[in-house]
Design a protein around this nucleic acid. Structure first.
Lengths: 242, 242
DNA sequence: TAGCCGCACTCACATATGTTTATGCTTGAG
DNA sequence: CTCAAGCATAAACATATGTGAGTGCGGCTA
């Protein structure tokens, strides 16, 4: 059975089983679907939305602006990710969300989320878990940014994105489509565009990846993991009772 | 009425009202209290605890180790903070927690948390909120680390810690006790100890702070905020229906 | 009271990464 | 078919921050 929420369900079922009732509740939670074009804002910092956005297709980034026009991307999102489940409880957006490509987005009213917390304790825990994984990724990025070299940090990010895309069925063998510019990668890693370019060349020269246009191929997973000091524990890919 | 959970309740009630039932449920959730000495681990990376730790008193840090013995601190915790509420759903600790000072710690069994999610939907949302604020702080740190100068980053951290300590009644006027070494600050900001020293001197020379021993005093809040590009929105200090 | 140890602090020097500017693809619009 | 725009790439140079080694203070501990 194909549902609107297929990528989200894939993501959650990787971590724990969902009952049919729960899956139905998720599907029914969607009030509408919209399309946002690349480079448009999906939500803006400071907004107080009364619904949360679930990314069905495309790539999006959470970001903050800083003085002198600099930008930091604090999360990259793929199909199946909630972009601002936080706003359900945080109320005010502490970051903006930008479409990196054309995005298909499902909308879930906060009132519906509240009803889920009243009626579906286990599903509530799974949505909570979803935000906890976001947090775990943030911690991992902090560590990579603070204590790894630029090259290692890039390798780490590539490992993570590859696995996350694979979970939602967006990998083909060792390859994924990664429609992200080097400037955007720089804003993600806290690097200049020029240095992103240097670092990518190095990973290519070492025979670890191929990256032409949008097509990213992992050529040597083991060595890439090692260079990026990547251990996937923080992604909670295990299926367990939660 | 004085409760074990006073600092936690202060923290939560800053964000939304709690009923007496909910406060009682929190207090009853504590199964025991223990003391951990400075420099000891409270939880270790890779552990699978069946209880979560609530910090009643003292300072603690979440950290990860990286090759060549480097360390990154991804969170600093004060009284009222949960140190690993995450482990309730993430199961495996993706980071360790270290006592920076002697810490008094209350223990909440995961089974009790699960019962709370079954019986107290609003309290569940407040605990969820608590982890969402952790996440918002992570995003803010990512932005500061990636796009601010070392000096601005330090100023930002000081602003944040001052406000968080104030919320739980640990500030006296413009001063707080901050028993953190410069090496630990370096591991927090992703800087070397030497550079932490340089940056602190600069903030002192500019007349923004005094920092002698453990005693930190904010001398010019407005300018410190400006230097650190600090806006407290992400701390969700507003009281709202959640 | 002596001595040790952790910590703040300094200096000289090293380097990873940033900045500026420029070139040439590739692609989409007209 | 042509042009403009966006993007990856490059080289030369600038600088924020790291490294390594050392000093001295203050507070425990014997």
């Amino acid at each position: 059975m194909t549902r609107m929420t297929t990528p989200l369900i894939l993501k959650l079922e990787q971590r724990d089983q969902l009952s049919d009732d729960e899956k139905r509740a998720l599907d029914n939670a969607i009030s509408r679907v919209r399309v946002v074009e690349a480079d448009e804002d999906i939500v803006r910092e400071g907004d107080r939305p009364n619904e949360s956005s679930l990314l069905l297709d495309g790539f999006a980034a959470r970001y903050k602006l800083v003085s002198n026009g600099r930008r930091q991307i604090s999360a990259l999102h793929v199909a199946g990710d909630f972009l601002d489940l936080h706003s359900f409880l945080l109320k005010t957006m502490d970051y903006g969300v930008l479409a990196l490509t054309t995005c298909r987005i499902a909308t879930v009213p906060h009132a519906t989320l509240e009803k889920i917390t009243d009626e579906f304790p286990h599903l509530t825990r799974m949505l909570w878990l979803n935000t906890l994984i976001d947090g775990a990724i943030h911690r991992e990025w902090l560590t990579a940014m603070g204590r790894l070299s630029a090259t290692a940090h890039m390798a780490h990010l590539i490992c993570e994105l590859y696995l996350r895309l694979k979970v939602v069925g967006r990998a083909e063998g060792d390859s994924v489509q990664l429609p992200i510019t080097q400037a955007e990668l720089g804003d993600t890693l806290g690097l200049s565009t020029v240095h992103v370019n240097r670092v990518l060349q190095e990973l290519r020269k070492e025979g670890l990846i191929r990256f032409q246009g949008d097509a990213l191929t992992i050529l040597d997973w083991e060595r890439l993991k090692k260079v990026g000091e990547f251990t996937p524990t923080y992604l909670s890919l295990q299926n367990e009772d939660r």
